[in-house]
Design a protein around this nucleic acid. Structure first.
Ligand SMILES: [Mn+2]
Ligand SMILES: [Mn+2]
Ligand SMILES: [Zn+2]
Ligand SMILES: [Zn+2]
Lengths: 143, 143
DNA sequence: ATGATAAAATAGAATTATTCTAAGTTAATA
DNA sequence: TATTAACTTAGAATAATTCTATTTTATCAT
């Protein structure tokens, strides 16, 4: 069962309607590792569904988030990125071009809180933002 | 030499003017561990400088960032928070009330990239977002 | 001290990301 | 095939941030 099939059954379980727009968004997200913004998805959708609205994109992304089928990635200060891979993982962002890569390593063992902070906060999760330069941006003489 | 004095000399070194508004913003930031938003600072400034504008707050924050005297914290998906403490450190955000705490631990030793990602990205930095519940929010029967 | 001037402050307009609203459309069900 | 709650849509609204044009001022050289 792939991402889309999985979500479709979840959608049905939640009593959500399966509309062409939603299916197109799911198709766009399925296996997508580019961490698209809402606009990226909107632009992609327009190709097959020219009358689709931004509201539908945002509404669907919110539904998917609420179902736990989509993550919001908060690494870019300018806009939200979305990630259909809900396996816990971390990200690295190229500080030059903004491209985002996945890091499937569990650092939890090392990521413990100092005593004073542990007394103040009950820890529920962690996410590492890595910063770097992607291969493309390191290559000299770029266009 | 405290934060403000330090920044004042840096401002002079950069040829920036020292205006009452800038001094007030520096005073507001000095030793501030609340990770305020631009609006938080604006509201605070209004008390002593009723005619101050948002543009001045943003301009000054940008100047401070450019001078390396201020960090932008990207842990809240809804707005930017600012931090006068430029010592490398990490943050924990209460997922209920949004309060942000500091974590002065260097996890770099443990935060290494897997081979494939290391081949694609040249690593320049890291920041850990911790999620949790603050004491206040854990206390039952809150107001 | 005074004047010249580049830099900064201001009000408000503009922009951008996101959310809301009201009206028309449709997937799901019977 | 009809019913209807849920969905889609266009566009308005909101909120964070940036820009613009104008006025003001800190600094520096007289
Ligand atoms: Mn990812
Ligand atoms: Mn901090
Ligand atoms: Zn890059
Ligand atoms: Zn809290």
């Amino acid at each position: 069962m792939n991402y889309t099939e999985n979500i479709i059954s979840k959608y049905r379980a939640h009593g959500f309607k399966l509309t062409p727009q939603r299916l197109a968004i799911l198709k766009c997200l399925d296996g997508n590792t580019s961490h698209p913004t809402a606009e990226d998805i909107y632009i992609e959708l327009k190709k097959t569904h020219p009358t689709v609205s931004f509201a539908t994109v945002y509404n669907t992304l919110t539904s998917l988030k609420d179902m736990g089928a989509l993550l919001e990635v908060t690494i870019d200060p300018d806009r939200k990125h979305f990630d259909p891979n809900t396996t816990p993982h971390h990200h690295i962002i190229c500080t030059k071009c903004g491209s985002i890569g996945d890091i499937f390593v569990d650092y939890s063992q090392a990521l413990t809180l100092p005593e004073d902070v542990g007394a103040e906060f009950f820890l529920t999760g962690n996410h590492v933002d890595f910063y770097g330069l992607c291969k493309r941006c390191r290559t000299k003489g770029q266009v």
